[in-house]
């Protein structure tokens, strides 16, 4: 997969060119202070997560009595097993729910946002600018402002406290349409669509076989950010859901954490549960990073 794309090549050249003359130019003082700044902030960003890892690996009696930033008896896996076993595995159910809400929602959401953005970029039709402006306005309307009216509407049709009450509203990503449109107009050449037409391919088929491939970085970006947005979403599930088996993991851990004062042993589960809940996102970001970095720059350059 490590093909040398033009941008990579350009970047490499730029780096090679830049390195030689700059080496003498930058003062050691500037280098050292830059590294100190980066080092200090690395601690700021990573120590809390380190602490969480250490805390989650301790048993209850050691939590208060041992060095909070270093391991005592390593009982991480024991704690994990306890967490999973607690209340018939409700934590696993939450993780699964989060994966369904975020994975399914982002997948469908990216597809429809990509299609819409593509149409706005590549076809001329009356109302095109109107649609785009309304969608752009949607970017500025906070999703939390919609949670309450959605709850009121859903309660009219008895849809609150269901999977769909969280899943369906999560499908809509106006920012995804914005990004897809910018990216499609920049990276899908009209000539290519024209050529596909001459070959007799229908419009939909052209999109799915030709254009989608060129939009991959943008689509991955849209997918990731929608995935994160849904995974992190709190207000909508908080307001919609009562049944604990439908909770996403964020809401579940929140519920546990607010009962810690009554049920102290929940604290162990909150800590280990918090640690486990951030691992899927870290993995997904690492796996897809070469895509979304390209997609990001497309959105912000405009």
């Amino acid at each position: 997969m490590s093909t040398l794309t033009p941008t990579k090549l350009a970047r490499g050249i730029r780096f090679a060119e830049a390195k030689a003359p700059r080496a003498q130019r930058e003062s050691p003082f500037a280098r050292v202070s830059a590294m100190i700044v980066m080092g200090v902030f690395t601690l700021y960003f990573l120590v809390p997560i380190w602490w969480l890892l250490v805390a989650a690996s301790k048993n209850r009696s050691q939590f208060n009595s041992t060095n909070p930033l270093w391991f005592a008896d390593f009982s991480l896996f024991e704690n994990m097993a306890n967490l999973v076993a607690y209340r018939d595995g409700v934590y696993l159910k939450w993780m699964l729910n989060s994966a369904l809400y975020a994975g399914g929602g982002a997948l469908v959401g990216t597809l429809i946002a990509g299609m819409c953005g593509y149409a706005l970029a590549k076809y001329n039709f009356p109302g095109r600018e109107l649609i785009f402006n309304v969608v752009l306005g949607g970017v500025l309307v906070p999703a939390t402002a919609l949670a309450l009216p959605l709850f009121l509407i859903f309660s009219q049709i008895s849809l609150t406290n269901t999977f769909w009450s969280v899943f369906l509203p999560s499908l809509v990503s106006p920012f995804g349409v914005y990004l897809a449109r910018i990216y499609a107009s920049a990276s899908v050449p009209d000539e290519l669509i024209e050529a596909a037409r001459l070959d007799g391919a229908g419009e939909l088929r052209t999109f799915f076989t030709v254009s989608v491939r060129m939009m991959v970085p943008a689509l991955v970006t849209v997918f990731l950010f929608q995935f994160v947005a849904i995974w992190n979403n709190f207000f909508l599930p908080l307001i919609m859901l009562r049944d604990e088996t439908l909770f996403p993991v964020t809401l579940g851990l929140y519920a546990w954490n607010s009962q810690v004062n009554q049920i102290p042993m929940l604290r162990d589960y909150v800590l280990i549960g918090a640690l486990l809940s951030i691992i899927p996102l870290i993995i997904i970001f690492l796996l897809l990073q070469r895509f979304w970095r390209n997609g990001l720059s497309a959105g912000s350059v405009k």
Binding site: M115, I131, L146, P149
Partner: peptide, 18 residues
């Protein structure tokens, strides 16, 4: 076909709630 899926959901879950 391209615009309708997003458009319908946008209308249902953005415009209608507003």
């Amino acid at each position: 076909a391209f615009v309708l899926p997003f458009g319908a959901l946008f209308a249902l879950f953005y415009l209608v709630p507003i």
